[in-house]
Design a protein around this nucleic acid. Structure first.
Length: 468
DNA sequence: CTATGGCACGGATT
DNA sequence: AATCCGTGCCATAG
């Protein structure tokens, strides 16, 4: 068989290779399950409770983030700081910091449960520890539309906290994605969305008042009456109404933005929990980025030294069985190390390459293929594939996106397309859009523009805005 | 006649 | 080897 004691980093056996590969494609949550399972099955494996930074091996005193690794070596370095950090991980629908309902009865309940975790994960960093239970309580009280059915006042009395404190927590939740979630009413949700949107683009001046004062009339589409009540021209009211209809979502949990009726749960996969977190160090805009790779267990995983010792002392009959465990444990630990190492290198390179995308948005995404990265890092393509698969990263702006987005060949073109359409004075046909894109250096076929439009949920030119 | 969406094919990517 | 993606052709709607 193979020997036990070697500090080498490269895989030396086929078993090692196979296991590393399978571990590589796992989510942080799945990895945790895997580790727990192995820990339970194999007595030779041990979890040392003391918390050491897996990257630099220094002791972590109570902190979940390594104080040494997170400190920048050089403030102006373009290279990102990457380190591995143990963190709370929610596994499936149970366990973790959020008390979860047992088996979800139906798909809908499961959706709600996932949403609450998704939101919780986003706001957790901004939450004071003593407010955590409050947030958890609010989030579990959401109805299937993502709204809070119980009045805040009642909840405050039940939880024995001031309404003001609860409001602060609610506010945090509302600003998380999907924006408006956790609001006490449809109006409130819409207003929050409006507020957020205002920072990014122009909003019809009347929109706010329409929501505040004329929700009932708005939903019945009685624009004339609405205009009379508000004392404003019908034309403006209609414009505001259309804006609301197109850009706001009264039911935050139904995340199908844009289209209203058929609640399409946004085609591809939706991730709720990041496996890596990218944030900017300090607030220094040109400073290095910090990448935190989530290690789903606290403490250090290692082969139990007592077990090694026990082998020496046991008789020949049991030795083989014990040795088997020992080998498996050593292998397992090594695979985990290998996994960390690979992901670390991957992220280091990816973040350096896609820095602009991470900081400034989708337009700046550079089309990178997994294959090209594999060549740079001198690993097999499939290694990158697995490392990228099933993972989500949280960007500095709080958005959680699949890691595979970093390798999306068309994301940047789609972003530019959105931008062009958003800025257009008059609806342009797909053919015209081809021209506009070409001006900016993106050469795509007419048919492809149509596809991108559909992906972004943008209506065809005829239906976009006939007037204006 | 023009603008779009459906189907399907070929090449790249995984 | 399987899958995804961009594109061309053609039917259809306006």
């Amino acid at each position: 068989m193979f020997q036990l004691h070697y500090p080498a980093l490269k895989p030396l056996t086929t078993a090692h290779l196979a296991q590393t590969m399978s571990l590589l494609s796992l989510t942080a949550g799945e990895l945790r399950q895997q580790i727990e399972q192995e820990l339970a099955a194999n007595p030779a494996l041990e979890l040392l409770e003391e918390r050491r930074c897996p990257t630099c091996r220094r002791l972590l005193q109570g902190k979940s983030v390594c104080p040494v690794c997170s400190r920048p070596k050089d403030e102006n370095s373009a290279e990102p700081v990457v380190f591995i950090s143990p963190r709370d991980v929610f596994v499936g629908s149970g366990g973790g910091g959020l008390e979860a309902s047992d088996e979800p009865e139906d798909a809908y309940a499961a959706g709600v449960e996932e949403l609450s975790q998704y939101v919780f994960r986003q706001i957790a960093p901004d939450l004071k520890p003593e407010d955590r239970p409050l947030a958890a309580h609010l989030l579990t009280s959401l109805d299937e539309d993502g709204l809070l059915a119980t009045p805040l006042l009642e909840l405050a009395r039940y939880l024995h906290v001031s309404v003001g404190r609860l409001q602060a927590v609610q506010r945090l939740i509302q600003l998380a994605d999907p924006v408006g979630v956790g609001s006490s009413s449809v109006e409130e949700a819409l207003l929050v969305q409006l507020e957020v949107l205002k920072e990014k683009c122009a909003v019809p001046p009347l929109a706010e008042r329409v929501i505040e004062e004329g929700m009932a009339l708005l939903s019945r589409r009685q624009y004339d009456e609405l205009a009379r009540v508000l004392g404003a021209p019908v034309q403006q009211v209609k414009a505001a109404a259309r804006f609301i209809g197109e850009n706001l979502n009264p039911y935050p949990a139904r995340s199908a933005w844009g289209e209203t009726r058929p609640s399409r749960p946004r085609a591809s996969e939706v991730y709720y929990q990041p496996d890596m977190i990218i944030s900017r160090l300090n607030d220094y805009p040109d400073g290095p980025l910090m990448v935190e790779i989530i290690l789903p267990i606290f403490g250090t995983l290692r082969v139990n030294p007592l077990y090694k010792q026990a082998i020496q002392e046991s008789d020949a009959e049991h030795k083989d069985a014990l040795r088997g465990d020992l080998e498996r444990a050593a292998l397992f630990v090594k695979c985990i190390q290998q996994r960390n190492h690979t992901i670390l290198r991957l992220m280091q390179r990816v973040v350096a390459l896609q820095r602009d995308f991470i900081l400034h948005g989708e337009q700046y995404l550079r089309p990178i293929t997994r294959a090209s990265l594999a060549r740079e890092l001198e690993v097999h393509e499939s290694t990158i594939s697995r490392a990228v698969a099933n993972k989500a990263v949280q960007l500095p702006n709080g958005k959680i996106i699949p890691l595979s987005s970093f390798f999306d060949r068309s994301l940047n073109v789609r972003a530019v397309l959105r931008e062009i359409i958003h800025a257009e004075a008059r609806p342009m046909s797909d053919a015209e859009l081809v021209g506009k894109l070409a001006e900016r250096g993106y050469h795509v076929a007419r048919r492809t523009v149509a596809k991108y439009r559909a992906m972004e949920g943008i209506l065809p030119s005829g239906l976009r805005q006939p007037d204006f």
